[in-house]
């Protein structure tokens, strides 16, 4: 049985800026990382491999350089890594992203039954948390989002019981396999690759599936298959405020000035 972890390569968001002249994202020289939540998706796939002997596969859709991200997954011990890459897949929103990912999962599932698909809760670039539900809905798998604990996996009965972390509550939910699970950080602590594993990973083959393999209608992938599009991109506007008083030389007086300002705006209930 397969356990599949979906991992996305993302720019380190603290480094992303907008070019003030062209109003486009500055992409040059930004380091790429594995989406932090996806390291937990990967870890849980490896856990299930270790504990139940499932076969773990990592998949990622992205440009050719995404191979580096999949190689990191190899170094951690996944059995197979597949890059979904084709010019036609570019510019995807979440609807067309889930289309490509679920086609790949279906293809893998034709060879060997899929038990669990792990996704991160969300990414740190697009940040939508929509791809996991998208994959589940397309494949007709049960979706279990925001999972912070796996209570049990019963491979005789083919059921999984998990704990979901929601606002002000947790839910214990049970569902038959196959399922799509989106994970939060509390689920586990990702392992680090050992040096021999990292070296071995350099040799491992990362398979590349383009659209000649997935055979999706080009109208349903990439930019063409995306109902949403970005019409404008800009830096967040902020009105620069006022520095009041002399906080260094006269903290008491400055505190007084602040209180006066708040009182005059009727912001204090005194």
């Amino acid at each position: 049985m397969l356990v599949i972890s979906c991992i996305k390569q993302v720019p380190d968001t603290t480094q992303v800026k907008i070019d003030p002249v062209t109003n486009t994202l500055v992409r040059e020289g930004i380091p790429f990382i594995v989406n932090p939540y996806d390291t937990h998706a990967l870890e849980e796939g490896l856990n299930l491999k270790d504990r139940y002997g499932l076969r773990s596969v990592a998949i990622s859709m992205g440009p050719p350089n995404t191979e580096a991200t999949l190689r990191k997954a190899c170094a951690l011990g996944v059995d197979e890594a597949i890059l979904l890459s084709d010019r036609a897949f570019g510019g995807a929103d979440t609807l067309s992203t889930s289309n490509v990912l679920s086609a790949a999962i279906e293809k893998l599932g034709a060879e060997e039954a899929v038990g669990i698909v792990f996704c991160g809760k969300q990414t740190i670039d697009g940040d939508t948390a929509q791809v996991g539900p998208g994959i589940a809905t397309r494949l007709g798998y049960t979706q279990l989002t925001l999972v912070d604990r796996i209570e049990f996996l019963d491979l005789k009965r083919n059921v999984i019981r998990v704990r979901r972390k929601l606002e002000g509550r947790h839910e214990i939910v049970e569902a038959p396999l196959p399922v799509v699970i989106t994970v939060v950080r509390e689920l586990n602590r990702p392992r680090y690759p050992t040096v021999p594993m990292r070296l071995a990973a350099q040799e491992t083959e990362v398979k590349v599936w383009d659209n000649s393999v997935l055979k999706l209608d080009v109208e349903t992938v990439g930019l063409k298959g995306s109902p949403t599009w970005v019409s404008k991109i800009f830096s967040p506007e902020r009105d620069k405020g006022e520095i009041i008083g002399d906080g260094v030389g006269d903290p008491e007086g400055t505190a007084n000035l602040l209180i006066d300002k708040l009182l005059s705006k009727d912001l204090l209930a005194v």
């Binding site: 929103d93 940040d127 948390a129 929509q130 539900p133 998208g134 809905t137 109902p227 949403t228």
Partner: peptide, 21 residues
């Protein structure tokens, strides 16, 4: 929210429309 994002992502996928987060 946890529930809203869970549902919205599924609905948009089934009716094949866009969803902005």
């Amino acid at each position: 929210t946890g529930m809203g994002r869970d549902l919205a992502g599924a609905v948009a996928t089934r009716v094949k429309t866009g969803l902005t987060a």
